[in-house]
Computed example of a mutant assay.
Amino acid sequence: MRLLPFPRDISFRSNEQDPAIDVLTYAIGDIHGRFDLFKKLVQTIKADAARFDGKCRVVLLGDYIDRGPESKKCLDGVIAMHRQPWCNTIALKGNHEQVMIDFLEDPLAGSAWLKFGGLETLRSYGISPESAEPDEAELEALHWKLNLAVPAIQRKLLRSLKLSYEAGDYFFVHAGVDPRRDRETQTEETLLWIRDAFLKVERACSKSVVHGHTPSDTYTDTRWRIGVDTGAYATGVLTAVRLNGTQRHFIQVR
C-alpha cells in the first residue's frame, strides 16, 4: 500500500479493521542521552519478546542524543542493538542526529546546536566549551575536537540511519508526515521536524503512523497515530509500543 495523503482518494482498510503488522514489533521513543533508561527498556523488551515465537523487530525512532547526560553511550547502545541475535533492529534518524551531523560537517552549525542539547552531547565525549556562547573560533575548535572524538563506527551509524520504515499497515518515522503532500514530495525536513500540520489531523496518510519527536506526559494511542516520546530526559520515563497483529501494548521504564 502506498503512503498517500489524507483526505485524497486512497485505499484505506475498512473502518471495521484495525491496522495490523506482519511481525512482532517494538518501537522505542526518543532516548535523548538517557542510556540508563535505554538499557533498562531493552532488557524489558527482550524479556517480553521471549514470550512469543519467532524473532521480533525493534524500531528505534531517533533522537538518541542531546539533553541527557550519556549521548555517546546511547549511540554505542544503538550499535549494540544491531548485533543482538534475538531481534532485528531498524534505527531511524531524528532531528537531533541531523543537527549533530551538520556540526560535524560545518562548525557554524554548532551555534544553534549547543542551545538545542548539543552541549550535553559534547560533554559525553569529554569536550567542554570555554564559554556559554562560543564565537566562531571556539566553534571551529569544538568542531575539530568532536570530529576527533567520534569513533568511525559511530560515524558509520549516523550515515546509515533511515528516515522511515514501513511494515504492514504501519509507517514509522521520527516526527511525522505532511498530510498535504504525497509520498514523493515528503521532504527530509518534514519527516524529522514536522509537528502541528501532522498532529492536528485525525489521519495523516494511508497507514497508522508511529512517531516520537513531540514530547508528552503520556503516550498517544489512536487508530491512525501512535506517539511514544514521553520526554525521557526530563520526566525519567522512556516508552515503547509493542505491535503484534492488530494488538497494541505500551511498555514504560522509569
Rank of each mutant, 00 (worst) to 15 (best):
G118A: 07
I28H: 04
K200E: 13
A112N: 06
T89M: 05
E188L: 08
G94P: 11
G117A: 01
P7F: 12
A27Y: 10
S206L: 01
E70H: 13
D63K: 01
A152L: 14
L60E: 04
S111T: 08
Y64F: 15
A50L: 08
K39F: 07
D135V: 07
M1H: 06
D63A: 02
D178V: 01
I101T: 06
G77F: 07
A50N: 12
T239W: 04
P129H: 08
T220R: 14
R183I: 02
S11E: 13
A141F: 00
A232N: 10
S131R: 14
R248D: 03
T220F: 07
R13C: 06
Q84A: 12
D135S: 06
I127H: 04
I251C: 09
R183G: 15
Q84Y: 00
N15C: 00
R57F: 00
V210F: 10
I31S: 00
L41A: 10
I79T: 13
T218R: 06
F116D: 09
L192P: 08
F172H: 07
T230S: 04
L104Q: 08
D66H: 11
E136F: 11
I45V: 13
I90E: 14
F12C: 10
N95C: 02
K115A: 12
L24Q: 09
L238S: 07
G68E: 08
R183D: 11
L238T: 07
K72H: 00
E140T: 09
A167L: 13
G54L: 03
L75I: 11
P5M: 02
S160V: 02
S124L: 02
K72D: 00
P215S: 14
G117P: 03
E70D: 14
V78P: 00
D135I: 05
D182Y: 11
Q17M: 12
Y125A: 03
R67G: 01
R242C: 12
D178A: 01
I127Q: 04
G77P: 07
L3C: 15
H174Y: 12
T246D: 15
G236L: 05
T246V: 14
I21F: 00
S11A: 14
K156D: 15
F52D: 05
C56S: 14
I127M: 05
V150W: 03
T239C: 11
D106S: 13
C87W: 13
D178L: 01
A109E: 07
L146F: 03
A204R: 07
N15S: 02
F6M: 10
D76E: 13
A132S: 14
N15L: 00
W224N: 06
S160G: 06
V58Y: 06
D36L: 10
E130C: 15
C74G: 01
T187R: 09
I28P: 04
W113R: 04
S206G: 07
I10S: 07
R8M: 12
R254P: 02
F52E: 12
L114T: 02
E130N: 15
S11T: 11
